[in-house]
Amino acid sequence: MAENKTKPTEKSPADFIEAVEPEWKREDAKTVCALMERLSGEKPKMWGPSMIGFGQYHYKYESGREGDMLLTGFSPRKTALTLYVMGGFKQRPELMERLGKYKTGKSCLYVKRLSDIDMDVLEELIAADLAYMRANYDTA
């Protein structure tokens, strides 16, 4: 069975964030990092070369494939700040309506700038997702 390529590393999240350009994107990354650390109660950890994660959970698919993944996290990518909302968005339409300007993938929330969204709603979304993940998965 294929091994999960996204794993925790020993790379420093703070050093990674300090290298983010431009400065406004670095400041957005610092803000999200502090928010996720506060909400999760977990210290940031690099997952692969560019994802910053907080905590982890164990998943197991019906196919038998299983592994560990970050509980919540983000990556300050070139085109957008990508936030990982592992439980998805379908169960929270009222929050998504109030969030602001964004795009989504299956578990990814893409935001150009934090100034495009309502930070209080983002906090509610992350907190609700953490509660969902902890209630439905084996978390560490």
Rank of each mutant, 00 (worst) to 15 (best):
C108K: 00
Y59I: 06
M1T: 13
E94L: 10
R77L: 12
S115T: 10
K78W: 04
L35S: 07
I126R: 05
R65I: 09
L99I: 04
G105Q: 02
K60L: 05
R98D: 04
W47G: 00
E37V: 07
M96P: 01
L70K: 10
E62S: 13
M46D: 02
P13I: 03
A80P: 11
P13L: 02
R134N: 10
L122R: 02
V121T: 13
A140P: 08
G53W: 04
S40N: 02
Y132W: 14
K103Y: 01
A128L: 04
S50V: 14
T9Y: 03
L95C: 00
Y61H: 14
S107T: 15
E62F: 10
P8S: 08
C33R: 11
P49I: 10
A19I: 05
E94M: 04
K5Y: 04
T6V: 13
A29L: 14
T31W: 05
N136F: 12
Q56H: 12
E97Y: 07
Y59V: 12
C108L: 01
P76S: 10
R26L: 13
G53E: 08
R65A: 11
L81W: 13
F89E: 00
I117H: 01
S107G: 00
C33P: 04
T31S: 08
K7L: 09
Y57Q: 09
